[in-house]
Simulated scan of single mutants.
Amino acid sequence: MKSPILLLPGIGNSGPEHWQTLWENADAGIQRIGAQDWENPECSQWVTSLECAVNRAGPDVVLVAHSLGCLQIAHWAAASQTPIRGALLVAVPDPDRPSFPKAAVGFGSPTLRRFGFPSIVVASTNDPFAETDYSERCAQAWGSVLVNIGACGHINAQSGLGDWPRGKALLESFLSAPAI
């Protein structure tokens, strides 16, 4: 059985040209998390939304997060004991950077301790929302494998990645590994 995949977009909810949307449109096994305010995100509400979605999806779910969705996972992982198969965290934003969205409330100081599930952090060398060393610190603290894909901006629609074949390959390799 294929693991269910739950997409966690960032602020603005990944538009029509974003790789998350393209993946969701191409695969019925990929679902987007719902019940979140995409324009005025509040961390505790997003964490509650994630807990409900994970409970519905079951312990074999794989989370695929972009940007603020990565911080959502970090805060959720610190508060929850609900098991998941793992997570792919793409373009983790640094909440202490001036570029961090002012509308996002409560996402600062994500717990920097090991997740209870396997994970991959994907970083870009020219992400306007995080320095590479921030991504490295997060990956190390969370026990994640770090994949640096070079200069790809915020790894979003503006990066011109289309349906991001390299990201799909990372997800497929993750899904083909034995569940821990």
Rank of each mutant, 00 (worst) to 15 (best):
K2S: 11
K2W: 09
K2L: 08
S3Q: 03
S3P: 14
P4G: 01
L6S: 12
L8E: 01
L8A: 01
P9R: 02
I11Y: 03
G12W: 15
S14H: 04
P16G: 06
P16N: 09
P16L: 10
E17M: 14
E17W: 11
H18G: 02
H18L: 10
H18W: 09
W19I: 04
Q20D: 11
T21V: 03
T21A: 10
L22G: 02
L22N: 04
W23Q: 05
W23D: 04
N25Y: 01
N25R: 15
N25P: 00
D27Q: 11
A28I: 13
I30N: 14
Q31S: 15
I33A: 01
A35C: 11
A35K: 14
D37S: 08
D37R: 05
D37Y: 07
W38G: 03
E42Y: 11
C43K: 04
S44A: 11
S44Q: 14
Q45F: 12
Q45H: 14
W46K: 02
T48G: 07
L50S: 02
E51F: 09
A53R: 11
A53T: 09
R56Q: 15
G58V: 08
D60P: 08
V61G: 00
V62M: 03
V62S: 00
V64W: 01
A65W: 02
H66G: 00
G69H: 05
C70I: 07
A74M: 07
W76T: 04
A77R: 00
A77T: 00
S80A: 09
Q81W: 04
R85H: 03
L88I: 15
V90G: 06
A91P: 03
A91Q: 03
P93Q: 09
P95T: 08
P95S: 11
D96Y: 05
D96P: 01
R97C: 06
S99D: 11
F100M: 05
P101K: 00
K102L: 12
F107P: 05
F107A: 05
G108V: 06
G108P: 04
G108C: 11
G108H: 10
G108E: 13
S109Q: 15
S109D: 13
P110H: 13
T111L: 08
L112N: 07
F115E: 04
G116R: 11
I120P: 08
I120W: 11
A123F: 09
A123R: 08
S124Q: 06
T125K: 09
T125W: 01
N126V: 00
D127V: 02
F129S: 01
T132D: 08
C138V: 15
C138P: 01
Q140V: 09
Q140E: 11
W142P: 00
W142K: 03
G143F: 14
G143N: 10
S144V: 04
L146Q: 01
I149P: 03
A151L: 05
C152I: 08
G153H: 06
G153L: 04
I155D: 13
I155M: 14
I155K: 14
A157Y: 14
A157D: 09
Q158F: 05
Q158I: 07
S159M: 05
G160C: 05
G160Y: 12
L161W: 00
G162I: 02
G162F: 06
D163H: 14
G167K: 02
G167L: 05
K168A: 13
K168T: 07
A169W: 10
L170I: 15
L171K: 03
L171F: 07
S173K: 10
S173F: 08
A177E: 14
A179K: 14
A179W: 15
A179V: 12
I180A: 06
